[in-house]
Design a protein around this nucleic acid. Structure first.
Lengths: 235, 235
DNA sequence: GAAATAGTGTCTGTAAGACACTATCGG
DNA sequence: CCGATAGTGTCTTACAGACACTATTTC
């Protein structure tokens, strides 16, 4: 391992090394999703972390300063997941959790800076952790779907991310840990409704999730109404 | 478009062009799946197209000649799907149908020739078309799963391909067109059983598929038993 | 007790699974 | 008629969806 591109280069049938062929730049772009609490009495909503895009005069498209998904170019010796975590750290201050690949965007003309492939990723972080880490000066959380005009394929990436998240949340209680380790069924249902984008039946939802939850001895307290039991995810 | 990497290079905040950073080679590897008819009275089985791997003295691992999935390096100005189709054409004589991305394999040490990312793809072709096109001298169709020792991540790619194919075939009649445009339910069930790897109940299967099929006027003939109706896929 | 929230009993409709039956061919 | 294959009727089971009910708290 290490320094894999420079030691005794492999040569193909025509005697040329790999490095003699043109290679693309490879980028990663990440939709870091979270569950934002609605202001006042609003319901929580699905949000995505954006970073302020530096104004770049040489950029052809939409000269105006805007917002974009955090991304970076892949460095040598790095995996895509490493690059995702690094870009989140550098651009937003956030430490990612568990990036999943979504899709590679490969249109040769998609980036006017040159030949750039982008591997889109999904990551998820609880709102409190995200707020504790992110730099508010150059990051924001946008409601999904957002009306902001995003560069490149970032709107498509967010769509893919939401689709994937909906699949993951369809039959499993909070698999990406948007909630802490103990939560009530009501908490869980609110999160799943925000992910799904639709209301869910409380009795059906409860019965669907129940066999993947373990009941904890404690019960909620303090608010009006019958106290709810706390649960945690199985395993 | 065109020649995107050489015209007026973009420079970043530190004044360096994209091309000043090391870039990986990007490869595509394709699991081209087909439905091979079993010899004699065997049942058909899922097969994957392999190409003979040229013996390369400079290769560290397993000097012995072997078989591998067809693949190639991505060329400039090319999409991944283009590269998949080109590699199938060059290495096997086959014209691909509709490659789908599966996953990017990104371990920096996965290829001892250097830093190579591989975008794994799935494509599917009917056996007759495949046999009419492929070069038998340097290609073969291996039963899935195969006991052959394959290089790189090729065994994982085939696993991913089969999983994806099973998902696609679970509730849709032959979406990848392993069968011709007209077929009987029995033909369809045999194909779906081979993809799923398990036997399927004939009555349940029929009812599941029926609402996505249209009945054709013709009926099968020639063999013993009640003639079967032909169907085709809706839309 | 009233309001509010948590949780359950139960009916209905739909669909998968299983089994057995009918239908239609070649011989 | 028999053997073989195609296709259907129908019973059981499971489960989602819907509704209404009970349970337990604060006020």
């Amino acid at each position: 391992m290490g320094n894999v591109t420079t030691s005794k280069p492999f040569r193909d049938g025509t005697g040329r090394a790999l490095s003699d062929y043109p290679r693309p730049s490879v980028a990663v772009d990440t939709a870091l999703m979270t569950m934002a609490p609605g202001d006042a009495d609003e319901t929580p909503y699905l949000g995505v972390l954006l970073v302020r895009r530096p104004a770049e005069p040489s950029r052809q498209s939409s000269g105006a300063q805007g917002w974009a998904l955090p991304g970076t170019f892949l460095h040598e010796g790095e995996t895509l997941a490493d690059a995702v975590r690094r870009s989140l750290g550098e651009k937003t201050g956030v430490i990612g959790r568990d990036p999943h690949q979504l899709h590679v965007f490969d249109d040769p003309a998609r980036d006017d800076r040159g030949w750039v492939l982008s591997a889109a990723h999904l990551d998820v972080l609880a709102f409190d952790e995200l707020e504790a880490l992110r730099r508010p000066s150059d990051t924001r959380i946008a409601r999904v779907p957002t009306k902001l005009r995003l560069p490149y394929d970032h709107a498509s990436i967010i769509e893919l991310a939401v689709d994937r998240l909906r699949q993951e949340y369809r039959a499993t209680p909070d698999p990406r840990h948007l909630l802490p380790d103990a939560f009530t069924i009501a908490d869980l249902r609110i999160v799943h409704e925000a992910v799904a984008g639709t209301a869910l039946q409380k009795d059906t939802f409860r019965r669907l999730m129940m066999d993947e939850l373990v009941e904890l001895p404690e019960a909620s307290t303090g608010r009006v109404g019958r106290p709810a039991r706390f649960f945690s995810r199985r395993r």
